[in-house]
């Protein structure tokens, strides 16, 4: 059977992400109870897998690395139609950069057994690095195509995809197994359904820690991360701010006047 792995991440709800601020005094993150949700782009990755499964006999595993609470978003993927969920969760995994994250996920994918295709969202809404997909591919020693916006051919060992470029696209032919990172143009993700939620009752979420993965502690989490945050600074604006007051008409009038005086319109 065709085996698909989808890598997903729990991220702070992007709609409320502006509530996460750096405390200017302590220079640490103030989370302010922002709920964790499925990274929006990962829904497109899962949808790609589900659409493939709708046509062919396929099995979809969803893999996430995160704290125990991230089990929720794995469950959500199961409710959306994935067959099996894996949560890689361990204190030792905490503080991972993209490199250590990709390494851990790659180890999880290998432990899960043979696979044909790995789908990832192009980037996460909190990190937005785009590194995890290509780095997973490197650790798995398989090819990757990033930012795909169309799967042109997906029958057989060679797939053809369109990958987004500045003002255009690349047409790429790639031999599977391969990693694909997907953009929003690829598809329209389905919504959660009540019956999907019910079906997910019978689906399993497997939790693996560092023991199960059998990886050395120095290769994961903060210890396994080549890059790290050295300092956090708050940014100060260099502009003198003037808030225009008055009735709507007056504000518009004043604004036009100031822009004319500045010689910009």
């Amino acid at each position: 059977m065709f085996k698909i792995v989808v890598c997903v991440k729990a991220v702070p709800d992007p709609k409320e992400a502006c509530n996460i601020k750096i405390d200017p005094a302590t220079k640490t993150l103030m989370r302010c109870d922002v709920p964790m949700v499925l990274n929006p782009l990962d829904k497109y990755a899962l949808e790609a897998a589900l659409q493939f499964k709708a046509e062919f006999d396929a099995h979809i595993s969803v893999l996430s690395m995160g704290p125990p609470e991230a089990g929720n978003i794995v469950k959500e993927c199961l409710a959306l139609g994935a067959d099996r969920g894996f949560l890689l969760s361990d204190r030792a995994f905490a503080g991972a950069d993209a490199f250590a994250t990709a390494y851990t996920l790659a180890k999880g994918i290998e432990k899960n057994g043979p696979y044909d295709v790995v789908f990832c969202g192009m980037a996460s809404s909190d990190g937005s690095t785009e590194w995890v997909g290509p780095e997973i591919a490197t650790f798995l020693k398989i090819p990757v195509v990033t930012r795909i916006k169309e799967i042109v051919e997906y029958n057989g060992q060679w797939w053809t995809v369109k990958a987004e470029l500045e003002n255009g696209y690349r047409l790429v032919r790639v031999q599977i197994p391969a990693v694909f990172t997907v953009t929003r143009e690829l598809n329209t993700p389905r919504r959660l359904s009540f019956s999907g939620i019910i079906k997910a009752r019978k689906k399993e979420i497997t939790r693996w820690g560092i023991q199960e993965l059998g990886v050395p502690e120095e290769s994961v989490g903060l210890k396994g991360s080549p890059s790290m945050v050295s300092t956090i600074a708050s940014m100060d604006s260099r502009r003198k701010v003037e808030i225009l007051e008055g009735k709507r008409e007056e504000k518009a009038e004043q604004l036009v006047q100031r822009l004319v005086n500045a010689g910009v319109i």
């Binding site: 950069d97 993209a98 490199f99 990709a102 990190g127 937005s128 690095t129 785009e130 590194w131 997909g133 290509p134 780095e135 591919a137 490197t138 650790f139 990757v144 991360s225 080549p226 890059s227």
Partner: peptide
């Protein structure tokens, strides 16, 4: 990222 992973090193984005 393909190069960074091959060279076992970190990469800062954007």
């Amino acid at each position: 990222p393909l190069i960074a992973a091959r060279l076992d090193t970190g990469l800062t984005a954007h």
